[in-house]
């Protein structure tokens, strides 16, 4: 399975490097949204709960953009047919796609988080960075798993661009909630505190649970 996941992931990353269909759009969306918040909130800087909320809602919507493109090549270029004929575990496709979306999110955040710090954040971003990276990675894992599962479900429907966000956003409420709660103390004006362990644990448990559910049902999703 590792061999198949590696091949599928390599193919997706190669295609993205050559087409730039997802990452630039996601990044541009995130940065543009920060600019809009900057003017829309009429505040030169944010901190604490509000800063965390703005950051996570923006990243979530940026992720939905990438999620919509995740299976397009498989659907439009017959990749599903070829994959279903191949003697590999169906969940290899799920794992590869989730890893691809996770990688896209990490790349987007490398640009978007500093942009957030520059455009909106009051407190310094460097101090809370290690804690923030931990929260980002845990939340990205949840977003990638749910995003991949829903994208696989929606790709064969006519209204996939509508269905994917409608299903993804409610499923990711726990991630946004836990990530915001874990991020808020990091972005406090009074000085960065460590991320609360309880919310990190909730994120980790959510990732594990939804990961197992997705791993279990993806096979049937693909067959049908």
């Amino acid at each position: 399975m590792r061999r198949a996941v590696g091949a599928l992931l390599r193919k997706d990353l190669t295609a993205e490097l050559r087409t730039f269909e997802s990452i630039p759009a996601m990044t541009l969306f995130a940065v543009t949204t920060f600019v809009l918040f900057h003017f829309g909130l009429d505040r030169s800087s944010l901190e604490g709960d509000l800063a965390a909320g703005v950051l996570w809602v923006t990243l979530l919507f940026a992720a939905v953009l990438g999620q919509n493109r995740l299976f397009v090549a498989e659907e439009e270029q017959g990749g599903f047919d070829g994959f279903l004929l191949a003697p590999v575990d169906r969940t290899a496709l799920f794992v590869a796609k989730a890893l691809a979306l996770f990688a896209f999110l990490v790349v987007v955040e490398i640009v978007a988080v500093p942009a957030f710090g520059l455009l909106l954040l009051g407190p310094d971003l460097l101090d809370p960075l290690p804690g923030l990276v931990l929260v980002l990675l845990l939340a990205d894992a949840g977003i990638a798993i749910v995003g991949t599962l829903v994208a696989g479900l929606a790709i064969r429907t006519r209204a996939r661009d509508l269905i994917a966000p409608l299903l993804t956003l409610p499923l990711l409420v726990p991630v946004v909630l836990a990530a915001s709660e874990a991020t808020a103390p990091l972005l406090a004006q009074a000085g960065a505190e460590g991320p609360p362990g309880r919310w990190l644990a909730i994120l980790a448990i959510y990732d594990l649970t939804i990961g197992l559910v997705a791993y279990g049902v993806f096979d049937f999703l693909l067959e049908d």
Binding site: R3, G6, R10, K11, Q77, A86, V88
Partner: peptide, 24 residues
């Protein structure tokens, strides 16, 4: 498959190499 599994942004060799990795 008539056109199935032919990803457009990879080379012929890359494509064959990709599918070869899915077989034992």
């Amino acid at each position: 498959l008539q056109g199935g599994g032919v990803y457009r942004h990879v080379t012929v060799r890359e494509l064959l190499d990709h599918w070869a990795h899915l077989y034992p």
